[in-house]
Amino acid sequence: MESSRRNFMKIGGACALGLGALPIVKAYAKNEKPQVAPDSKALVATKWAMVIDMKKCWEKGKPGCKDCLLACHSVHNVPEIKTIKEEIKWIWNEQYEHAFPGQENHFLPEEIRQKPFIVLCNHCTNPPCVRVCPTKATFKRKDGITMMDYHRCIGCRYCMAGCPYGARSFNFRDPRPYIQTELNMTYPTRERGVVEKCSFCDERLAVGLLPACVEACKCGALCFGDIEDPNSEVRKLLASRFTIRRKPELGTQPSVYYIV
């Protein structure tokens, strides 16, 4: 076979490229997943859901109470970045017209129009954020929790464009200097360049604790449980009270319900 240095270089280059691509082939071919034994105290569910009784919150809670928000943000080392543009929010307050846009009218009771609604990630059954993520950095757990892998996220922010609820925050800057609460050493802080959001306290469920917001609420306005279990507290509430969800017309099937 006649060959030249030029051809030799070409073939050599192609081989090097092939060898370089080997890890990718392995990644595609990989099948088994790492196994981790669950904690025996862990709270488990077929599908986690939350029912928020806003009436209870407004009537029984002290005015301007932010216990649930503060508990969450301190447990998860959520930084307090004061600019509207770069705020990091896991759970926060919105007015009715912002939480439920398109459903407001001029004649709603003053209470509904003025009082704060608690909003957080809805852990949708059909989450658009999971559908669009190009690396599976955000994914759906078997128990219904929409999770984030901060170590895999490439920061493309496609999930933020996908989320209909504005539940996702991007770390535009290094968040660590902005953590105002006492650092919780058992929960990781985030780096700049990744997206973060509420995780239904997966880390607390794993050791048998309820989500921080649920635990912090002194008037029991937040109810958390297995929506697939007919005897669970959330199911009883859903069966006995009228509830609404945010933007139900989009078909995302939020797992957070509101009693108003």
Binding site: A27, V132, P134, T135, A137, C153, I154, G155, R192
Partner: peptide, 26 residues
């Protein structure tokens, strides 16, 4: 332009390492 928009450009190859056909970006 895609690369300069990424928050974590050094993780760019995650798109290949964790191929996700349900993502249009993939």
């Amino acid at each position: 332009f895609i690369v300069v928009d990424l928050g974590k450009p050094m993780r760019l190859l995650n798109v290949l390492l964790y191929p996700t056909p349900n993502s249009i970006l993939f």
